[in-house]
């Protein structure tokens, strides 16, 4: 009886080995296919840009058309940062509209519109098209992807960073929590009603920046900087301290030099 069982086990083990073998082969085949596909992609001109990241790190197929509703009193400057700073990876094509609930848009919104629409990306990189609609919404920016809106500029940034994967997904960074807390501060700043509330939040934000060049001790502009600079541009400039003002200038420079 015992013998019989052992024999059965042996047969099973053999079968398992075979299956595993087949799986390895299948995996190799898949890798092969993937390689050829990637080289094909590269041939299509994707390699031409020297700053290009390996295309495997970018998955921006099937990105739906993005619709962003924003109040012209609170322009989402972060869109401009994304468009300029990520211009070697994605081509963010923006078309702006004014909704009928707005009879006249602010000068700031008008300027942002023309800057966003006027940006021409020459490189043949994946295109994401975004429709920015100036609308009588609250201070929160709304992003419509499917049927439910994503509310708040920082949450729109979070969504975009996840969408683009790879180096832009701040969630892969070891400073993820730090960045998240800066984003939350920005969100609270835009929601704040009183000056006292804002001053308190600005102090916390200032602490996060400290003496370092960029937020969260980063060596270059991160999503935290993008969110913070848009937020600071939306609050009265006399409430911002020297340290943050200096940083804001540097940030703006970084973006304008990309124009």
């Amino acid at each position: 009886m015992k013998n019989y069982r052992n024999q059965e086990m042996a047969v099973l083990e053999n079968q398992q080995k075979e299956i595993l073998q087949q799986l390895v082969e299948l995996k190799n085949q898949m890798l092969e296919i993937k390689k050829t596909l990637q080289s094909n992609k590269a041939d299509l001109g994707l390699k031409s840009s020297p700053k290009k990241l390996p295309s495997s790190s970018l998955k921006i197929e099937n990105v739906p058309d993005l619709i962003v509703n924003a109040n012209p009193k609170n322009p989402p400057y972060s869109l401009l940062c994304i468009q300029r700073l990520w211009s070697n990876i994605i081509n963010l094509k923006v078309k702006t509209y004014t909704h009928s609930t707005i009879s006249k848009i602010t000068k700031e919104a008008e300027r942002l519109s023309s800057e966003l629409e006027g940006f021409k990306c020459t490189e043949s990189i994946p295109v994401i098209s975004l429709r920015l609609i100036w609308k009588n919404v609250g201070a929160d920016v709304e992003l419509l992807v499917r049927h439910y809106p994503i509310m708040g500029e920082v949450n729109v940034l979070r969504y975009l960073s996840r969408l683009l994967q790879g180096p832009f997904n701040y969630e892969l960074s070891p400073k993820c929590l730090e960045i998240d807390s800066v984003l939350d501060l920005c969100y609270l700043l835009l929601c704040s009603k009183s000056k006292g509330e804002r001053i308190n939040l600005l102090q916390q934000l200032d602490k996060k920046l400290g003496k370092s060049g960029w937020f969260c001790d980063s060596s270059s502009v991160s999503i935290a900087d993008i969110a913070a600079q848009s937020t600071l541009k939306n609050i009265p400039s006399n409430e911002i301290n020297q340290n943050l003002t200096k940083w804001l200038q540097k940030c703006t420079q970084q973006i304008t030099c990309k124009v």
Binding site: Y97, T98, H99, S100, T101
Partner: peptide, 10 residues
């Protein structure tokens, strides 16, 4: 419902 539209039109 009030009539809504975009400018420029969609």
């Amino acid at each position: 419902e009030p009539f809504t539209f975009l400018e420029p039109p969609l």
